[in-house]
Design a protein around this nucleic acid. Sequence first.
DNA 1: CAGCAGTATTCATTTTAAAACATACTGCAA
DNA 2: TTGCAGTATGTTTTAAAATGAATACTGCTG
Lengths: 115, 115
Amino acid sequence: MTENKKYKIEVRVWIEETEGAFLGIGKIWLLENIRKTGSITNAAKEMKMAYRQAWQLVEEMNQRAEKPLVEKLLGGKGGGGAQLTEAGEKAITVFYEIEKRIKEFAQKETQNLKF
Amino acid sequence: MTENKKYKIEVRVWIEETEGAFLGIGKIWLLENIRKTGSITNAAKEMKMAYRQAWQLVEEMNQRAEKPLVEKLLGGKGGGGAQLTEAGEKAITVFYEIEKRIKEFAQKETQNLKF
DNA sequence: CAGCAGTATTCATTTTAAAACATACTGCAA
DNA sequence: TTGCAGTATGTTTTAAAATGAATACTGCTG
């Protein structure tokens, strides 16, 4: 009896805007970590990514969304921080909904793949 | 009247095997160019990629598919060449079919995206 | 007003991936 | 038996991306 390898379909979903890729799972994780930690600095540490990089991603998201997804607080108690706007919260929800539907659909296509 | 940016969903599809990513659109293009040109060398040129890289991709595909997708001919008239096996042809067909269905489904999800 | 913790920004360094280069090998055909 | 064109494979260069380090700034609080 021949041994059959198992193959499965994987799907990566992201949202494009006129200038190119706008929001994918990486930025969504960043948003979630900002929500969890209250700052870009700590979100970046959580994800073991450079603050600089995280800050740039936030900048890009904010500029290219119709309304900012992250509100940044400068100075003050605790030095400031960052928190999600309503639009930011919604972005997470909407992204995961769409991603879930597409991935579920893709899984259905995974019947009897052979190569 | 508020100006609304246009957002659309993009999807990348690939096939995974136990050891990780196995076959995505990049390798499919390579297969198609091998079919078109009859050799890895010329397929690589067509795609402006290094021969070494193209050769490694073919190697990887062949090892991880149940049966080789590309048959390589060593030496002889014209120095040899490469051509698709039946499994290689089928891989292209199957991949595009799956990708098409998933992308079509994803497009339907693109109604009224707002961020 | 000095300390603090985070944001904002520039510059140098490291890491990584890709490409380029170099050589050996294969087997037909002139 | 030499040329040829492609495969096979290791080494070196280059280019791109991520990281790290350094510095200024912000505005509350003791």
